[in-house]
Computed example of a mutant assay.
Amino acid sequence: MALRIVTADERLSRAANKTTIALFGPTGVGKTTQLKRLAPSETVCIDLEAGMKSVQDWPGDSIPVRCFEDMVVLASLVGGSNPAAAPEAFFSQQHYTHFAGLHPELVALLASKSIVFLDSITDLTRQAMAWAKKQPEAFSEKTGKPDVRGAYGLMAREVIGLLKHLQHAPGKTTIMVGILEKHTDEFGKVTWQPQMEGGKAGRELPGIVDQVISMSLFAREEDGTLRHDPERGTERRFVCRAGNRFGLPAKDRSGRLDETEPADLAALLRKINAPAAPIA
């Protein structure tokens, strides 16, 4: 029986020590360089896209990942075992015990870190899709031919399961970086959406994480008002609230963020996790 009562003090302590953030932005806006804002001693970067060139002087630890199977192992070591998982499933106690025994150095490293920076969720879905296409579910039972819908369904289920497992990682703040892409319909209407394989994982992601943040470039009008200008803007900002005037994906579960915030992940985390003011 894993049921237990969590006291208010315990809950507040956990809330102050962990959060999950999906950080999306156009290519080249500086998402990966936000790693430099985080304390190297507390942070590990999971590098799925060989994109560490922009932060090559960052003195923290990174783990390169080139296939979905390796990412599943890392997620298991970060989040521990899932008591609800079947014995043969990803993230079960048997799965965790097996790979923890194979990689004690990773267990030790991850245990010493409080922040996991995953770069990027876009590449995670690409790797997951490459894996899914090789699984039995990706082939028709009748004809034996590839079944694209089956592959996409499997990919979405496994990616969502992995992200939920990271969400439950005890004492870990998880920051998932991804590409934000521009879509223009036949009527010229512009929308911005996370770039991910398939649609299901992208639709469910906001319900999994605590915060959805869009990072982009802005310009200032003469009166100081911000204007979204991803091509010529010079000011980087985080957009943090749903229903914002820029039409960018965002969500603030903490209720502590303004519509936009300075592009500084460390400052953002401090604001999210600041102790609540005492009730008078």
Rank of each mutant, 00 (worst) to 15 (best):
A89H: 12
S81A: 10
E49K: 01
K172P: 11
G79C: 09
H168W: 08
H103W: 06
H183A: 11
K164A: 07
S140G: 14
K36V: 04
V78I: 15
V29R: 00
K31Y: 12
P230D: 03
R37M: 06
P136L: 06
D9R: 10
R227D: 02
A75S: 12
H183I: 08
R270I: 13
H168N: 13
E222A: 08
V107R: 09
R227V: 15
Q135S: 11
L226T: 03
A250Y: 04
A242P: 04
E88S: 03
I272W: 04
L162R: 12
G25M: 05
K133D: 05
G233V: 00
W192E: 15
A108Q: 13
P249L: 12
I46P: 01
G161M: 07
R220N: 01
L166W: 01
A276S: 09
I208R: 07
Q56H: 11
G255L: 06
R256D: 10
G60H: 02
G255D: 01
E204C: 05
F187T: 15
G188K: 06
E221C: 02
K189P: 07
K18Y: 01
Q34F: 03
L102W: 00
A15D: 06
S41P: 13
V190C: 09
D57E: 14
K113M: 02
M196S: 09
S41Y: 05
P275K: 02
D147V: 06
E158F: 00
A108Y: 13
L23Q: 08
S114H: 14
T234G: 00
E259H: 06
Q127E: 10
Y96R: 11
E10K: 06
S76L: 01
S13R: 07
A108D: 15
F117H: 08
E222S: 06
H168G: 13
Q211K: 06
R37G: 10
L163E: 03
P64S: 03
T191N: 12
R66D: 14
G101T: 00
D229A: 08
T173K: 00
I46K: 07
A128S: 07
F246D: 06
I21W: 12
L118E: 06
K200P: 01
P136G: 12
L74E: 00
A86I: 00
A22H: 08
A280M: 04
I63E: 05
W58T: 03
R220P: 00
P278E: 03
R14C: 09
R245H: 14
G178E: 09
L226K: 09
G207S: 14
S13T: 13
D252T: 07
P146L: 09
E235V: 05
K31S: 07
T143F: 08
R270A: 15
L23S: 03
P40K: 05
L74V: 00
A219S: 15
I179E: 12
